[in-house]
C-alpha cells in the first residue's frame, strides 16, 4: 500500500491568499477533472481542456508536495481562521487523493474546505464527510432537464448528496452562481428555496454574480464560447436575489 504522503493526484494550480474560498486567508488547491461541463465554467483548464495554456499547468503531485505548499502559509491561517480549500475542477473526482489530503490536514490541524459541484457517488461523500470542516457546495439548476442542458449531467446526485450531508450535520455554505437567464430566473430561485425548506441546517448561501471572466478565458484557450451574449447583472438584480434569500432566513453573502 502506498503511504498517505506518497499518494499522487493531478492538480492544475495552488493559489495562496485565497480570500473568497471559505473563512480567513486560505490556500486553494485546484484538483483536475470535473464530471460537469457548465457553460459558464471559470476553470476550463480544470477539465483538462486547455493543455496548451502555460498558466494551466496540470501536473501529478504527491500529497507531501501539496502539504508542503499548504504548510507555508500556516501563520496566515492561524491569524485569520483560514486553512486549505480543495477546489477544481471537482475535487471529488479524485476521491482517494482528496481523502489523503484531508487526512493530512486533519493530522496537522489545518482547517479544510471542499468546494464541490456535488456530482459524485454518495459513497465518496461518506468517505470525506468526517474530514471536512466546511463544504462549499454548488447548487445550480433545479429543473433536471435544464441542468442536463447547461451542465451536461443530471442534478439527481447533486441534490441527494446535499441532503445526505445536511442531514448528517455537516457545515455547508451553498454557492449559487447567478447566470443571467439560466440560474437566476424567478422559477429556479424559487425552486431552490422550496428545496431548501426541507434542509433547515443549510442556511448560509453565497450568491456568485456572473462575470465574463470564464468567457475571456475560454477565448484565450480557443474553446467554443457558449455564453457570448450574456450580460452582467445590475446591482439591483443582485440585491433582489439576495433579498429573496434573506427573507427566507438565509445568511447571504454576495461573492465568494
Amino acid at each position: 500500500m502506498v503511504a498517505q504522503q506518497d499518494k499522487t493526484g493531478a492538480i492544475f494550480d495552488i493559489k495562496k491568499f485565497a480570500i473568497h474560498d471559505g473563512p480567513g486567508i486560505r490556500t486553494t488547491v485546484f484538483l483536475t477533472g470535473c464530471p460537469m461541463d457548465c457553460w459558464w465554467c471559470h476553470n476550463p483548464e480544470g477539465r483538462g481542456e486547455a493543455p496548451t495554456d502555460p498558466t494551466a499547468k496540470t501536473r501529478r503531485v504527491t500529497v507531501a508536495h501539496v502539504m508542503e505548499e499548504i504548510e507555508k502559509d500556516r501563520v496566515f491561517y492561524d491569524q485569520s481562521g483560514g486553512g486549505a480549500t480543495f477546489s477544481g475542477g471537482e475535487p471529488m473526482a479524485q476521491p482517494e487523493f482528496l481523502v489523503a489530503l484531508l487526512k493530512e490536514c486533519r493530522r496537522r490541524q489545518i482547517a479544510t474546505a471542499v468546494d464541490t459541484c456535488g456530482y459524485a457517488p454518495p459513497g465518496d461523500f461518506d468517505k470525506v464527510a468526517d474530514l471536512v470542516d466546511l463544504f462549499l457546495y454548488d447548487l445550480k439548476i433545479m429543473d433536471d432537464e435544464r441542468h442536463r442542458t447547461y451542465t451536461g449531467v443530471s442534478n439527481g446526485p447533486v441534490l441527494e448528496n446535499l441532503k445526505l450531508l445536511a442531514r448528517s450535520g455537516r457545515r455547508i455554505q451553498l454557492r449559487i452562481p447567478l447566470i443571467p437567464g439560466i440560474t437566476d430566473t424567478e422559477d429556479n430561485l424559487e425552486s431552490i428555496l422550496s428545496f431548501l425548506d426541507d434542509l433547515p441546517a443549510v442556511r448560509r448561501v453565497s450568491l456568485l454574480p456572473y462575470n465574463r471572466f470564464g468567457e475571456d478565458k475560454r477565448k484565450r484557450y480557443k474553446l467554443p464560447v457558449r455564453l457570448e451574449r450574456v450580460r452582467n447583472q445590475s446591482e439591483t438584480e443582485i440585491e433582489a436575489a439576495a433579498e429573496r434569500f434573506k427573507s427566507h432566513g438565509f445568511d447571504v453573502k454576495i461573492g465568494g
Binding site: G24, I25, F76, D78, Q79, S80, G82
Partner: peptide, 13 residues
Amino acid sequence: EKLRHLVRAYFTM
C-alpha cells in the same frame, strides 16, 4: 479584515 490578518501575520513573524 483579510488585510488586517495579513499585517498581523507579518508582524507575528
